[in-house]
Simulated assay, not measured.
Amino acid sequence: MEKLDKEEQRLLDLLPKGMERPRPLKELIKLTGWSSRRVRGTINRLIVLHHQPIGARYEHPNNGYFIITNDEERSAALAPLTSQIMVMTKRAQVIGNAKLNN
């Protein structure tokens, strides 16, 4: 696992511990001055490359990113990811099996 660079550390420091008050993407954009793509990319690197336990809540008004601190939060963060994987797998299967007009 590589050491965090300054940008990664800065973003990690902005994330709250626990899912009670997650930090919304819009707020992270405002605090960093970065684009949404850059914030999401940095969060992805923190998770995938640096193994940081970062979760997200998607329901309004309490949506945003947070650092996972327990198994309940881990389950809450995994549920929408698992659902998205299932939807995308089904979509890929349908596209892969579609009859083409040629």
Rank of each mutant, 00 (worst) to 15 (best):
A76W: 01
T42V: 14
N102D: 10
L81H: 08
P61H: 01
G64L: 02
E59H: 09
K99V: 11
K6H: 11
M1R: 11
N102V: 12
Y58T: 10
S36E: 15
M88E: 14
E59I: 12
S83M: 08
A79R: 14
N44P: 00
A77Q: 04
M19W: 07
Q9W: 06
P61Y: 01
L49I: 03
H51C: 09
K3Q: 13
H50S: 10
S83D: 13
Q9M: 12
P16V: 04
A77K: 06
S75F: 11
L4I: 04
F66H: 04
N101R: 12
K30Q: 13
I54F: 03
I95F: 14
K3N: 11
N44W: 11
T69N: 03
P80Y: 03
A77M: 07
L28G: 00
R91K: 14
H51V: 07
L46D: 02
L12C: 03
Q93D: 12
L11E: 02
I68F: 05
L25R: 06
R74G: 06
S35C: 02
A76K: 07
S35G: 07
M1F: 09
T69A: 06
A98H: 09
K30V: 07
W34A: 09
R74H: 07
N62T: 03
R40S: 12
G18F: 02
R37D: 13
E27R: 09
N44V: 08
L100V: 15
N102M: 11
G55Q: 05
L49S: 13
L78M: 13
G33Q: 08
M86K: 14
K99C: 08
L14I: 00
A77H: 04
K3P: 07
G41S: 15
S83K: 14
H60D: 10
A56M: 10
D5F: 09
T69C: 05
I85V: 15
S83A: 13
